[in-house]
Amino acid sequence: MLAFLVSSIRLGMTFLFGSTGETITEKSGHLNLGIPGVMCVGASCGCFAEYLYLTAAKSNANYFLAVFIPILATLLGGALMGLIFSFLTVTLRANQNVTGLALTTFGVGVSDYMIAETGSIYSKGSRYFTTSLPFADDLGAVGEIFFSHGILIYLAIVIALVSAFVLNKTRIGLNLRAVGENPATADAAGINVSRYRYASTCIGCAIAGLGGLSFIMDYLNGNWEYCIDAIGWLTIALVIFTVWKPHLAIFGSLIFGALYIASSYITGVSFASKEIFKMLPYVVTVIVLIFTSIRDRKENQPPQALGLPYFREER
């Protein structure tokens, strides 16, 4: 049971990175279906940076650099993907769905290559990420659940809370939401729509990239065996599940994490019915969609301009 909870939290926080990033992106009106690809690329960049650093530093590697360098590389990799997405959709006005799917295909390809080339050699790096608070072991079950995690897990919660605050309580957040709801209105109000879309997409993708890194380092303990795009798709579902609210995503991600791994912890059922459990996150997302649609609260609907391009002089 304890192991189940701990695993749920670790996997959940991976989702949380992705969904926070995607929420920030979607709030600007960008439906980025490239998130799975972004997470793959983020993970690849982070892992590769870690590999380079550990090879170079040999035995003198210190904790700070071993964590900081991969995170930085992941952020840059994710942001670069966001930049490509924005450039294609904002500047060249490509279709967002097509662009996103292309990025996913690309990202999955990159990570497949990484798996094939470097495989599961990151367990050494993973040690740095899973280094927990020193007093965790003294607190028994409570310590195990709340304090036994590596830095990325806490970072996910902090980023989600900061995002929720920025989105709802600051001028930047207000402007960003306006861009996603009604870009023409935002434009007429003197907000630079393109700049906001570029920035939010790059920042969102950088955060989502961390999800990929967290998945490899925290959840798989550095044993990169299979591709992580399935996680990426779930984060998009999570955004809908939590009705575009990062603070709700903290709890939503835990539920998703638990549902996703529940099959491994339930004994006495056939392989086929285990697979049904993996479907549960999608099922609850559909239920939430139905529920929010029936309630018809405007506040719980997706940003109105989601997926739509904006060009000022077009009528």
């Binding site: 001028r171 207000l174 306006a178 009604n182 109000a189 405007k298």
Partner: peptide
Amino acid sequence: VDVFSATENIILGL
């Protein structure tokens, strides 16, 4: 913006 209040719309972009 439909989901904003009157005031939020008024101060938008300022």
